[in-house]
Amino acid sequence: MIINFVLNGRPVSRDLLPQRRLIDVLREDFCLTGAKESCGEGECGACTVLLDGRAVHSCLVLAGQLEGHAVTTIEGMAENGELDVIQNAFVEHVAIQCGFCTPGMIMSAKGLLLQNPDPSEEEIRIALSGNICRCSGYAQIVAAVQDAAKRLREVGKA
């Protein structure tokens, strides 16, 4: 069936089997391989994208659910090669190691900051609890999100 949705700010119209997983549609049909598959059942968060501004697991969303909705992937975060504030904070805080969890982690952080521009450390830890990182112990990631939130508040964007 033809499905119309918005992908990284652009309207798209594609003939998709409605039962296909969003992660497969993104990776196979749109060559957007930033969303990673690690558990395939919504437990690890590596495939997180935004659906209408809310963080969702793209392995648990089906193509048929996309009609009329807006999907933002990690590839939609940078503008003209300029990294988004959250992406920059992750780089600067050395919150990226193997990087496999990073796209999902950044999208979860984005989802959090869209809902709550001034989260406490505990709120950040809870918001990121659906995203597993095996490399860092999360300290640098939490610090990066705190810093990004601060910077976004300062520029009044959030």
């Binding site: 957007l32 930033g34 990673k36 590839e75 990294l83 780089v91 050395v94 990226i96 990087g99």
Partner: peptide
């Protein structure tokens, strides 16, 4: 010095290709 991992900008943008991203 606390220098970020070399490919962290590519990782932050979802541009780094892991084996499963190859086609």
């Amino acid at each position: 010095k606390d220098i970020p991992v070399n490919d962290s900008r590519a990782k932050a943008c979802g541009q780094l290709l892991y084996a499963a991203d190859l086609h």
